[in-house]
Computed example of a mutant assay.
Amino acid sequence: MTELVKVTVEGGVHRITLNRPEVMNALNREMRLELLAALTAGHNARVIVLTGAGRGFCSGQDLTDAEGLEAAGFEAILNDEYVPMIRAITEAPVPVIAAVNGAAVGAGANLALACDLVIACDSAVFLQAFTRIGLIPDAGGTSFLPRRVGLQRAMGAALLAEPVTARQAEGWGMIWEAVPDDRFAEVVTARAVKLAQGPTAAYAALKQALRGAFDQSLDQQLATEASLQGQCGASADFREGVAAFLGKRPAVFQGR
């Protein structure tokens, strides 16, 4: 039986590969459940990398998967399956990289945008395809997209349902970087290794502070910063970081 989601772990890097290349890694129910389990398991690693097998990242919901697609089932399938997947990414205590190796469409695009760092190959495209079939963006798209690119670009991408190239997405601030296809694997690996060697407790605090910033006033955010910085300042990683700086050597962070 083919694994719909493949997981490898090496050097603290928890690599998750969506593995239905024959359908551009479209998400059916079994795959969604496997992906949720893989993401949750990754919380115990030092960094998570999410990518796709074959020539696409993820083409979104598998429209041939009848279960949950009837009108009465959309809300349930989103609440029961998509929301836990998105939260497993956004609430992960470690950095999550989306390595977008090809087309990211519909829920697949928003699965990528949920991640902390999005790295795409030049040939990748992002497509909010929902209005083509009479739907609105889901899987967090109505939250992630306007926060990353502003309301006008989010409206255009969603209303027109036209592809956004990787370079265009980089220019908009939708993703962190677009890299040449022949360097894509090398760059993703280098980013993942660097993060895996970093101060994981600080990364967790950083994610909490930045992801909550849109929902807080300046005073609230300043208080959050002070609290989280207090926790980081009491950590072994901080002591190691200072010692390494003073000793003019690379820091060796132990993490959680």
Rank of each mutant, 00 (worst) to 15 (best):
R32G: 04
S143V: 12
G12A: 09
N19K: 04
L63V: 09
T2L: 09
T165V: 07
T200E: 14
S227N: 12
F245W: 12
A185V: 14
T200I: 15
A98P: 01
S217L: 04
M24S: 15
L117G: 00
L69M: 14
F184Y: 10
Y203C: 12
R29V: 09
Q208M: 12
V105M: 11
V149H: 00
E91V: 00
I48Q: 02
P250C: 10
G73V: 01
T200M: 15
Q254H: 14
H43E: 07
G230Y: 01
R191F: 15
G60H: 08
L50F: 05
E34R: 13
N19C: 06
A112P: 00
L69Q: 15
Q197L: 12
L18N: 04
V187T: 14
R29P: 00
A26N: 01
R46Y: 03
A71R: 09
I86M: 11
A92N: 02
V193L: 10
G150C: 06
I16G: 00
V9Y: 05
A196E: 07
N28I: 03
G212N: 11
L111A: 07
M1W: 10
T142G: 01
G106Y: 15
R87Y: 06
L206D: 08
F253G: 12
L33M: 08
L195S: 06
L135H: 06
P93H: 06
G54V: 02
E240N: 05
E67R: 14
A213E: 13
G173N: 07
E81F: 13
A251F: 02
K194E: 14
G171Y: 08
L218W: 07
L4I: 02
T8Y: 02
N44V: 02
Q168T: 14
V193H: 10
A41L: 06
D182Q: 10
R148D: 01
E34T: 08
D182H: 11
T131D: 05
A161M: 04
A243W: 08
R87I: 07
E70L: 10
V179H: 11
I119P: 01
R256C: 11
P137T: 07
T51Y: 03
I77F: 12
L111G: 05
G233A: 11
Q220D: 06
I136P: 09
C58F: 05
E186G: 04
V9D: 13
I16M: 07
Q221V: 01
F126D: 00
V164E: 11
A99K: 00
A38T: 12
A76G: 08
N19M: 00
H43G: 02
M31E: 09
H43N: 14
M85S: 11
T17I: 06
R191M: 14
S227Q: 13
V7D: 01
G255R: 04
G150Y: 03
T142Y: 14
A107N: 08
V149W: 03
A129E: 10
A223V: 11
L210P: 06
S235L: 07
G173S: 09
C58T: 03
E75L: 15
P21G: 04
I133S: 15
A166C: 04
P95K: 07
Y82G: 05
C232Y: 12
